[in-house]
Amino acid sequence: MEHRIRHLSTYSYDPAALRVALRLKLFPVDHEGQQVESWKVTVNDEEVSPLVFSDLGDREALWSSEDALDQLTITAEGIVSTRETNGIVRGMPGFAPPGIYIRETELTEPDEAIRALMGEATGDDTLSRLHALMGLIHERVKYLTGSTSARTTAADALKDGKGVCQDHAQLFIAAARTAEVPARYVTGYLQMEEETEELLETHAWAEAHVDGIGWVGFDPSHNLCPTERYVRLCSGLDAFGASPIRGNVLGETKESLEVSVAIGQSQQ
């Protein structure tokens, strides 16, 4: 499946920001299920290229303004083709050992409830336990837009029983790690089935490393493993680590953000 993607983020600063510095992880990389046909990232119409490739699997770029700014427009667009791999992600560049993805972070620190949730996720092997976990999260944490914030932890989302894809993914990661299963957070794009073009934000899901298989994606928000409708953008230990855009703003200013993602099938 070929996806035509346009991911637009517009930041407004009032009063103008004195200086803005950005770190961008807006560059999808190839793996067996995904091939980047063309891709371009611009910041205020200036093209930005990746400076480094991190062995955690992402390409990263820097951008900074020399002058005061009242608006910042970041555009990532291009064509990515995908094929069905049953959620399995193989052939990613980088050699980060899966073991580091056992690491806890502030957002994914497990509490007793999370440990208990993993305990409930039973199955014959790791893979079936993870499927059970995905189902449990889908059932226990209702998808409710705007119910949580970027600072909501996995433990809070489980306690409140509501959240968005970010909370689902973080909860999955936190729980999997309690069973010593390496797990990471993925930010990407999802082409919904109902419409050919849908305006939305970026999507998020989890990947877990299963012995004998490798990295497998799990999307608790939809209770399925990523299909060819999913485009992987970047990953991290949690939502914060997998932020496609990180900014540092100098000056006393109020920031507001508007994001839109347009993803549709490209004309064949």
Partner: peptide
Amino acid sequence: AFLPEMIGV
């Protein structure tokens, strides 16, 4: 004190 970001550097 381990920095995952240093992997491969």
